[in-house]
Design a protein around this nucleic acid. Structure first.
Lengths: 318, 318
DNA sequence: ATGAAAGCGCTAACAA
DNA sequence: TTGTTAGCGCTTTCAT
């Protein structure tokens, strides 16, 4: 009836009735039922966001970017967390799609077959984020972790380091970290080098783990002249440990992390890193979802962002 | 029809038909429409989460706790961010309630009048989190920031510090930080003391701001013997700065933060802090929402968690 | 400018 | 055990 028109500012309604309706609505504390509305109109202002974790620091930042961009589009994010489990991801996705959201933003390109099929048949914009190394279902926004790793390797080799160690997480399901390491090893191989040693961890405070792993790897292989960390937090832990223990950084020992978390600006030295463009990825993904109302037809765009090496104070200049 | 029964594992269905339906569903890539389901059944498996920010580190942790607890309840979190704006909060809440969620978890006890009214009339469990200093609408899970501040003041005074400075954020809408400071000043007053100086910031990298503010306040008031920071990140920045500049911590200068972020385990010294029980608050809140299916009648419980001072290495022992 | 009526895709109650 | 039917509270279309 008319009420519906007033509350949606649609169609022709006289100013008089309009005010009357608004007043009544307020008096009754009326809150429209979007469920009914969505069912009738076949439109839902929700966007499904599927991410592996909330404790990784990286994902809240992406989320934040998405949330910012969605701010005044009338779209609401619905978040699902997969804990890096493909099966959980499939379940979360199923759950989300059953709400017929206006779009889906999902981390990574690797999904179960069923999940992939769901995404393909969703009939709404799908944006796979964080990673561009592989084939996407629809749109893709991210960086090439493989090339990121490769570039870092090249920069390290160019700076004259030769005995290089890697420190990272033990997470087979973290495809981006895996690709970064693969790219890194490729980069070393191109210079005729290989990893001299490596060390992995899981769980715990990253800063602390960074310390422990750094100590362990340097004890085991004292002639290392560079440590590449799979993220800035463990890198920061390593940096603190090295400084305390009198290592000549970056003279005799270089260090680099990954992500470019500005959380860490303010350390005694600035850790070399690469910005993973997290917030930007979130924004762009949200933009695509918000901007392509009912499409699904047009087919996806692939946006590759370029992470830049920030040398900081832990890679020596030649 | 029968299909509905199969997919919800309800009622009596013969194994034969059951399998046939399941098979057909899979073949067609059928995904049920929860919108229609929700409308018909008046049940919605969504929980609205309203928080001020995602960049604060604290809230992702709470979210994480909620998400964990909701994991196998079949409930999905829907997140809304308010940027510490009461009006935005009201808008976000309105939006959420129009989806008739099974519950609402909202940060803080301070809301606009309209928002409060909505919460009261929501007809589902409402849990206000983080703070217990004030009157809640329904259930409340949190800590007393006022007492947290007071306790910290008492501990500092007991350790013999007398010239105490405060460093915090300039956020009138962050009621919890405000209450903490008020409690802190009360605690000092009870010992016949007052803040000797204070310094506020907004935006930027917290670690870096901590450094800058620490330098500034110590330049301005060199005889300070204690610095109380409103969060651990700026506290950590301050700690690093003090160590680099040769301050005798905790002998001549004590430091303390707030939150107990384990992210920072691994600093050269362990910063004194108080655990804000963030994850636990999330879990408990989710538990309440999940455990009180259709109630709304029973009336809320108030769960006050007790933050404990972790002295670390930056408050001297007498 | 307003009202009336027909669904949206399910669930719940009842009938068979 | 299965099928039938009447809504859930809106939006949309068509009539007034």
């Amino acid at each position: 009836m008319t009420v519906s028109r007033v509350l949606r500012n649609r169609g022709d309604v006289s100013e008089a009735t309009r005010e009357k309706v608004l007043e009544a609505a307020k008096a009754l504390g009326y809150v429209p039922n979007k469920i009914a509305g969505a069912l009738a109109s076949q439109r839902v202002n929700l966007v499904g966001i599927v991410i592996p974790s909330l404790s990784n620091l990286v994902f809240p930042e992406v989320l934040s970017g998405i949330s910012e961009e969605l701010e005044d589009t009338g779209l609401q994010p619905v978040v699902g967390v997969t804990n890096y489990s493909p099966d959980k991801e499939e379940a979360v996705l199923y759950e989300m799609l059953s709400w017929r959201p206006s779009g889906v933003i999902i981390a990574g390109l690797e999904h179960t077959e069923a999940a992939r099929a769901m995404l393909e048949n969703a009939g709404v914009p799908v944006v796979e984020i964080m990673d561009v190394d592989g084939a996407g279902v629809d749109s893709v926004v991210g960086i090439s972790h493989r090339r990121a790793g490769r570039h870092m390797a090249e920069a390290i080799v160019a700076a004259g380091y030769r005995r290089i160690g890697f420190l990272g997480t033990k997470m087979p399901e973290d495809h981006r970290a895996r690709k970064r390491l693969e790219g890194f090893e490729e980069g070393l191989a191109a210079a005729g080098l290989a990893l001299a040693d490596s060390e992995f961890y899981q769980g715990g405070s990253a800063l602390l783990k960074g310390r422990e792993m750094t100590e362990a790897i340097l004890k085991r292989t004292p002639d290392l002249d560079f440590l590449y960390y799979s993220n800035d937090m463990i890198g920061a832990g390593g940096l603190l440990w090295c400084l305390e223990n009198g290592y000549d950084v970056p003279g005799k020992l270089g260090l680099a992390g990954f992500n470019g978390v500005d959380l860490l600006d303010g350390l005694p030295r600035k850790l070399a890193t690469m910005d993973a463009c997290r917030r930007e990825i979130g924004r762009k993904a949200a933009e695509i979802v918000a901007g392509r109302p009912h499409s699904g037809a047009i087919g996806g765009e692939v946006i590759e962002l370029e992470p830049v090496i920030e040398f900081g104070d832990t890679i020596r200049k030649l």
